[in-house]
Design a protein around this nucleic acid. Structure first.
Lengths: 194, 194
DNA sequence: CTAAGTCTGTACTCGCAGTACAAACATCGT
DNA sequence: ACGATGTTTGTACTGCGAGTACAGACTTAG
């Protein structure tokens, strides 16, 4: 895969609603080309096919999330505060690009089939959260759970589920992403028991 | 779609590892036919295409989960105890049929595109959990969270994520599904704060 | 001002999803 | 026994659309 110019990358996003709505399988490459305003021949100059186009866009978003999460992790504050910042960042970037976000969440299978994407997913979601959980257990701001990975999975799971739900059935009583991060963390932090 | 005989349905499961591994897109209908030992013409007699085959299998699993969850909900015990039973059931059925479970989780996008499957998903996962959360808030065994839906999403999210992770990177230190339900609920119930 | 790389239009191949259809086979009511 | 109705399957086919081939235009830099 050649280095993709920013111009092309940005145009590709125009085709995302299409892909998110009907799935990659049902989306013809000519549709993508037309919607994005990129000639088919040019697409094939940069990518080897549909799969790679979507993978590129996923990688793009995951890298952006990983970068911003890394910044959020480096700020001042307790582990809990930074955890909140990281999760808020993840939610913000996922919802900001709703079509890409929902395509990504709806296609976890595709991600799990590509080692490169699995890496990016981990850098964007698991690793930062898991590190903060461990750190928080160290400084006492979080309890030491038996399996920090399980904690990060719980957080990741609630993040993507809440977003998926807003895609399936746009909830009127939930202001995504402004309220979501806060409410969600409240549940995850304090638990469900009284 | 005609009524699918049990014989056919059960044979179809043979093709699932294939689909889970390489995705439906890359799986040829002849491969499915060969692997399952069902003539292609017969497949098209019952289903209108690949999509519908997978949708049928998803529906199958989701209905089974909804049924057993409903049974678990009806047993004796506090809301919390029954919640544990429901979640354990969900995890058990998802992991019991690992290929189908991971195909389902990896393809949430496909599910969200089909109203019928969305319904089944809700009956299998959201509704029972959400009801128990509300019930628990009523009898005092759970705290009254602002948004019960968020609680059920958190639980559903952690369930599917933990399973997805074991698919991506089979963890040696986690005995799925025996330990999973317990550990996971511990995290979700007590929260991450000390 | 040429060489190497980028971009795009046009025309093509071909694999595979889905169709058509007829013949074999089963089931059942009368 | 027998027609009627539905099931099952083999074989042969059609057509869409992914991906390829390639030539010519256009850009950039050495």
């Amino acid at each position: 895969m050649r280095k993709v110019p920013a111009q092309i990358a940005s145009k590709l996003h125009l085709a995302l609603p299409l892909i998110a709505e009907q799935g990659l399988e049902q989306t013809k490459i000519d549709e993508i080309a037309d919607t994005a305003g990129i000639p088919k021949a040019t697409l094939y100059y940069y990518f080897s096919g549909k799969e790679e186009i979507l993978a590129f866009l996923f990688e793009d978003m995951l890298t952006a999330i990983a970068d911003e999460a890394s910044i959020a992790m480096g700020t001042e504050g307790t582990a809990v505060e930074r955890l909140e910042a990281v999760v808020a960042t993840q939610i913000r970037l996922l919802t900001q690009n709703r079509a890409l976000g929902s395509a990504l969440i709806g296609d976890l299978g595709r991600i799990s089939r590509s080692p490169a994407l699995v890496d990016s997913l981990q850098s964007a979601f698991y690793t930062p959260v898991e590190n903060l959980l461990i750190e928080g257990a160290g400084d006492g701001s979080l309890r030491a759970i038996a399996n920090p990975l399980l904690g990060s999975m719980t957080i990741f799971g609630s993040v993507i589920m809440s977003i998926l739900v807003t895609v399936i059935a746009p909830a009127d009583d939930l202001d995504v992403p402004n309220d979501l991060a806060g409410e969600l963390l409240d549940v995850v932090m304090r638990g469900l028991l009284p």
